[in-house]
């Protein structure tokens, strides 16, 4: 297992390196931030001074080498717009996004898993058909539209829930969180649901397919022949087996939810990383964009690693055979 983790970490470094190259070149190609950052009235001398201060006068390869050099010291550059380290800026916003993403995934599992199990066990019943039809909506409705509709219905027409912001936060270990107060929860609900919708649909489909496949297996037949109750056959024999692919998808989706919460955060004015990214792109704040993308990549890598470890906890075949051999 240790060998496996070490090999994966080495591979991850390679991925990070390639990614940094791509991101750096890509952001450079988008355009120069000078025109946005410096007011048109500034003199040519001021202009040159600012360009030199930001290091934009150097050739691209030198800029990249300097960036890499600093990156090894944990410094991904200072934000052009805020003039504070990009990392610090991102980490300040991160808890909000993480909270939103976790809440959305929790909703997805709590709603998706039971519905998927039901649809798999009784595929021909009316509720199961409705669930499956509903899941198609979950796949096909665009996030921004769902968000807007939810705001219109629950915030504007019914006035039950707030439409933007985090509400009042409570400090948990020094980090501000929303879910510990009623007001915070009310603020979480709409953006969380918006973000969860696609994942609910995904988990329903996966769980249903897994359940139907498991129902045909010999071990389920044998479990029934032992006289076990349905609760035990479904809850232990089936669930433990189908959880493996579901956990993978949940974890990978968690990554994408974090990375692509951009739209939802913008609609609900949720003060997270996604909103920061949009703002940074608007002003071409290069260090923040680069840092953000690299952090997201690192997060994906970490999640993938955790999935592999989770695998080994769920599947004894992985746990007990040397994972390093494959």
């Amino acid at each position: 297992m240790l060998v496996f983790v070490i090999r994966r970490l080495l591979q991850s470094l390679l991925v990070l390196f390639v990614m940094s190259l791509l991101v750096f070149a890509g952001v450079y190609a988008v355009g120069t931030p000078i025109d946005i950052l410096i007011s048109p009235e500034a003199t040519q001398a001021d202009r040159i001074a600012v360009v030199a201060a930001l290091g934009l006068d150097k050739p691209l390869w030198l800029q990249y080498l300097l960036f890499v050099q600093h990156a090894f010291g944990g410094d991904l550059g200072k934000s052009f717009a805020y003039n504070i380290p990009a990392i610090q800026l991102i980490f300040e916003r991160m808890p909000a996004t993480l909270e939103l993403a976790s809440f959305a995934m929790l909703l997805a599992v709590v709603i998706g898993l039971p519905l998927g199990l039901y649809a798999g066990l009784k595929p021909k019943s009316l509720p199961a058909r409705s669930i499956m039809a509903g899941s198609i909506l979950g796949f096909s409705l665009p996030t921004f539209w769902v968000g807007l509709m939810l705001i219109m219905v629950f915030a504007v027409w019914l006035g039950w829930l707030p439409s933007n912001g985090r509400g009042s936060t409570v400090a948990l270990l020094g980090v501000p969180v929303s879910f510990l107060s009623i007001d915070g929860l009310r603020h979480l609900l709409l953006p969380g649901l918006t973000l969860a919708l696609l994942n609910i649909a995904l988990i329903i489909r996966l769980t249903r397919a897994g359940t139907q496949e498991a129902l045909l297996t010999d071990y389920v037949k044998f479990a029934r022949a032992k006289g076990l109750t349905d609760a035990r056959v479904v809850g232990v024999h089936i669930l433990k087996n189908i959880l493996i692919p579901i956990v993978t998808v949940i974890a990978l989706q968690f990554g994408s939810v974090i990375a692509f919460a951009v739209v939802t955060e913008t609609i609900f004015a949720w003060p997270g990383m996604g909103k920061l990214l949009i703002d940074s792109i608007n002003v071409l704040d290069r260090p923040v964009i680069v840092a953000y993308l690299l952090i997201v990549v690192a997060m994906f890598i970490l999640i993938n690693l955790l999935v592999d470890i989770a695998y080994s906890l769920l599947d004894p075949r992985v746990r007990l055979s040397d994972a390093g051999t494959n």
């Binding site: 297996t217 010999d218 071990y219 037949k221 044998f222 479990a223 232990v236 024999h237 433990k240 087996n241 769920l314 599947d315 004894p316 075949r317």
Partner: peptide, 9 residues
Amino acid sequence: ATSLNPVLT
């Protein structure tokens, strides 16, 4: 090989 549940001892 397939009648015993693979994830239970």
